[in-house]
Amino acid sequence: MSSDLFRSPEAVDRSLMVACAVVWLLVLGLFVAAGVALADLGQSSAQSSSGDGTPWLLYTVIGVSAAVIVAAVPLLLRARNAGGAASSSSAPASPAPARPAAAARAAAPMAATARLRPGAPNAAVLDRIWLRCGLAVLTATGAALCAVAIATHLMAVDSVVASWVLYGVAAVITVGMVAIPLYFLRELRAQVEPAA
């Protein structure tokens, strides 16, 4: 049963959201580290080689980031519980009231159209494709930015070869991102074309 839970579409969507959030938190931390390395590079060599401690700006950014994450966790849990409660209470407790005759006549052509097109694409599946495409593009963008931040830090501390290798990795990720919308466009067409 637990394997079915992890294979459910909602669990996959949640995992993609968490991965995207983690990548962008890494982007934030790595760019702060790169900024500190660049600031040290701009100072005199005696000051940068002494390494007396971490600048106060780095502690400030780390503290603000940690506060945002800690404040977001209860909100996410509350939203998850509210979503679960809303879906469980969405089942009608009593039978639906009878529709007026005019509404029934207006709904008849729509019902006939639905019967003529049994393979119409599912709106939830289409929404899921769009969501996953957006999350995949955002995650790949964050991964490329992580590589750029690490490469910038390495360049500032005089590791030139490793820095250029990581710039190359960022370029490969950026060029490869073209495949993400193409893949999801194929998935979208696979959902829409049978209905046509």
Rank of each mutant, 00 (worst) to 15 (best):
15 S>T: 15
135 L>E: 06
136 A>L: 01
39 A>Q: 10
117 R>K: 10
65 S>L: 11
14 R>T: 14
43 Q>G: 15
135 L>F: 07
111 A>P: 03
80 R>I: 05
93 A>E: 13
85 A>K: 11
141 T>R: 11
108 A>Q: 03
105 R>N: 12
14 R>V: 14
81 N>G: 10
65 S>A: 15
85 A>Y: 01
94 S>Y: 06
14 R>S: 14
12 V>D: 07
111 A>G: 06
96 A>W: 01
132 R>S: 13
71 A>E: 07
128 R>L: 09
55 P>F: 01
32 V>Y: 02
32 V>E: 03
57 L>H: 03
96 A>N: 08
11 A>Q: 08
26 L>A: 11
12 V>S: 06
108 A>M: 06
141 T>L: 15
37 A>V: 09
43 Q>K: 14
67 A>E: 04
51 G>V: 10
134 G>V: 11
109 P>C: 05
107 A>L: 12
141 T>C: 15
71 A>Q: 04
24 W>I: 07
60 T>L: 12
12 V>M: 10
140 A>R: 10
22 V>P: 00
44 S>R: 05
82 A>T: 04
110 M>A: 15
125 V>W: 02
19 A>C: 08
118 P>N: 03
133 C>E: 15
12 V>N: 03
106 A>N: 02
78 R>F: 04
97 P>H: 03
41 L>N: 09
10 E>T: 14
45 S>I: 12
62 I>K: 07
112 A>C: 03
113 T>P: 00
42 G>A: 12
130 W>C: 12
60 T>E: 01
79 A>C: 08
111 A>K: 05
142 G>K: 01
32 V>L: 02
29 G>E: 12
107 A>M: 07
16 L>K: 09
34 A>W: 06
97 P>K: 00
17 M>D: 10
75 L>C: 07
91 A>M: 11
81 N>D: 13
43 Q>V: 08
